[in-house]
């Protein structure tokens, strides 16, 4: 085995993915022994490539990270199917090279970025964030990425840019799920300008020190840790700066259930279920959901004076 240079592995990393995959192989072996080989077929993570030169960051958590296997096999990515294990089973058809991201709209410097250029736009750093799904479960994920603000600065938004809209790839040839009409494609998400500029808001290109697996939104995705997971658009092909609040996909699907802000808030229930608690993947007992997913100290000021029951 090749010896890793010190800066290849970030200090906060405890269990490398190789070990997870080792465990996984062991488990698959056991299952196969029991005659249930077919049961293990779904959700094999791709052998991912390490990203070189990832810096550690101050964004760490004193909480156990969710195992690589769970992060990469339990996903909501409807472009590959609505089941939790569908993305891991189907996303292999996604082509992540060549890939470009168009930055346009109310900016002085509209530009089409090649993904490899984007990955060198700013130093890549590891950030361990909580991820709270609107469905009531959560994970802790070590992302690799750069602040969205770095990209925004280079685009030089005009005074008319009040919101940022994110558009996910919409290609039925690569994404079997978009042949179904379950949502209006392409998937669209959006942030207010100050949310997009916030230092916590991350453009992620990897997790666990490796290139982002396809089922997790490769090659580049948004991560907004104080909002429900669906706000963090995956496999982004376009970033538009606009004056009006974007009409996001989930708002179009169920306006009474999903608002534009969708900040994690234990006091505002989803109309059909409580948001007061969550199941952290890997834990038995539910834990209390934290206001702004525990990032209140950093982001509460963005919403000062707003009625969060109304702007859910």
């Amino acid at each position: 085995m090749r010896l890793l240079k010190p800066n290849d592995i970030s200090p906060s990393e405890i269990t490398p993915p190789e070990i997870y995959r080792e465990r996984r192989r062991f488990m698959q072996g056991s299952i196969a022994l029991l005659g249930g080989a077919a049961l293990a077929a779904a959700g094999e993570p791709q052998a991912a490539t390490r990203i070189a030169g990832v810096r550690a960051s101050a964004y760490k958590l004193d909480e156990d990270k969710t195992p690589y296997k769970d992060v990469t096999t339990y996903n909501n990515f409807y472009e590959f199917g609505t089941g939790k294990d569908d993305p891991a089973a189907n996303a292999h058809t996604l082509r992540t090279r060549p890939w470009t991201v168009r930055v346009e709209g109310e900016v002085k410097k509209a530009r089409t970025w090649d993904i490899d250029a984007l990955m060198k736009l700013a130093p890549l750093e590891e950030r361990v964030y909580r991820m709270r799904c609107v469905e009531g479960w959560s994970m802790v994920i070590p992302w690799v990425g750069f602040p969205l603000a770095e990209l925004i600065r280079r685009a030089e938004p005009t005074g008319n840019a009040k919101y940022v809209e994110f558009v996910t790839l919409n290609d039925p040839k690569q994404m079997p799920g978009v042949r179904s009409r379950v949502l209006d494609w392409p998937y669209i998400e959006g942030l207010r300008m100050d949310e997009a500029m916030h230092p916590l808001t991350l453009m992620a290109v990897g997790l666990y020190g490796e290139v982002l697996p396809k089922q997790n939104g490769a090659p580049i995705r948004l991560v907004v840790p104080w909002k429900y997971g669906f706000k963090s658009a995956k496999s982004i092909v376009k970033i538009r700066f606009v004056e009006r609040q974007p009409h996001t996909t989930w708002m179009a699907a169920a306006p009474s259930e999903y608002g534009f802000y969708s900040n994690v808030n234990p006091q505002v229930d989803h109309p059909r279920w409580s948001q007061a608690r969550e199941r952290r993947i890997g834990e038995f007992l539910k834990r209390d959901t934290l206001m702004f997913n525990g990032y209140g100290a950093q982001v509460a000021s963005l919403y000062r004076g707003m009625d969060l029951q109304k702007y859910f």
Binding site: M27, S30, I31, L34, G36, L39, A40, K69, D70, T73, Y74, K84, D85, W137, R279, I281, G282, F284
Partner: peptide
């Protein structure tokens, strides 16, 4: 027994 219930066994 074989750990095949996935990431969210209770679900």
């Amino acid at each position: 027994v074989t750990g095949g219930l996935g990431a969210n066994p209770i679900e």
